[in-house]
Design a protein around this nucleic acid. Sequence first.
DNA 1: ATGATTTTTTGATATAGGTCAAAAGTTATG
DNA 2: CATAACTTTTGACCTATATCAAAAAATCAT
Lengths: 213, 213
Amino acid sequence: MLLLYLENNTNCYYIIVNHKQKTIEKIEDIYQHFETYIKLSEDLKSELTNRLKPIIFKKGELVLDANQICKESYFIRKGVLRTYFLKDGKEISEYFSSANEWVNSPKSFMQRKKDMYYIDAVEDTTAFLLKVNDLVFLFDNFPEMERYARLSMGSVFGHLMERIASMRFTSAKERYLHFKNVYADIYPRIPLGMVASYIGITQETLSRIRSEK
Amino acid sequence: MLLLYLENNTNCYYIIVNHKQKTIEKIEDIYQHFETYIKLSEDLKSELTNRLKPIIFKKGELVLDANQICKESYFIRKGVLRTYFLKDGKEISEYFSSANEWVNSPKSFMQRKKDMYYIDAVEDTTAFLLKVNDLVFLFDNFPEMERYARLSMGSVFGHLMERIASMRFTSAKERYLHFKNVYADIYPRIPLGMVASYIGITQETLSRIRSEK
DNA sequence: ATGATTTTTTGATATAGGTCAAAAGTTATG
DNA sequence: CATAACTTTTGACCTATATCAAAAAATCAT
């Protein structure tokens, strides 16, 4: 049994899991992230505090089903979520997201329609949840949130471009090394099969590459 | 000899090329593009008009050298620009941009530092130029421009994700057909070698695929 | 137009990485 | 703790696509 408990006065969230109470996050921690892009007014801070809800996902849990419209985004505090899609019945990892990153099914979330992406938890994960309506409210009332979105998307953008560049005319080994390098922190925690589909090779090939030295 | 001539009162630009005067664009045309995302106040319209400058590129012309910082963006009206980088001395096409799209070297433009991307003109191209400082001015003074940026980036974002998805576990032929489909309008105008590097295969393979049916 | 570049096609050969199958290792669950 | 259920490794074989080379076709510049 999972129960979310929100202690109003302290901005400090607790999660009660099987009767064991466990602090997961102070909401203030997330302010830092925003403040690398914009200044947060007290007003905006309190709106964020009201709207961001803590949530946890157990390892293996399905966070988003592709048959549903994605109506919320998750800001990860700890753990790893994976976005993937199915091709010929096989799961192809689209990307991995970890601490201080937002995750959703982009097209589905922004356009409120179904898309091909599933999201699941690679390991136990704690996050803050933000509903699309709340985000719209923030965009409409705090122009600085628009700037935040623009700037933070910008860095993801660069990342995607690099990935496209690195995907063509690079050997399986090069891609493996590149992945290990870029995702040094989370690499050891991700099953080999998921890594393989992320970099576009088969499990078997990745296993061989990995063992060869 | 190329000369840019700006007729102030009419919002209508002329370009004089070899003494032949040729109208290229009414500035109003570009408003439509913005208005698919945001409402344009008269104030913002006039600032856009003041800051967007018409420019033309001849086929084959280098628009941006990777050794330079990208200090301006181009909004294409007609023609095709290509963003590419060098790998082992060979040009790898990163993407093609055509009418009603912005082009720049994203990281270089936003972070004001050098990046790996060159831009050249695949065919004669007319565009509006916007300097980074002018864009900053617009962002600082018109919050709706932040929204415009966020929304228009969003669609590019979806496009990049689809491309990454289509790049793994798809045969050369599938990627070729996908490209032809997505870029139906500009496909016939782009040399085969450039298309090949875009989809990540060699020219020879593309030539064989194309001739096989 | 006409020769000179550049681009595309065709051919022969090599190889990285895919596929299928089964064994070994690891992690979960009653 | 034991058995089931994954995950990873290893092996044998095969195919799609790369490479290198050269001919053919198209485009460009004088």
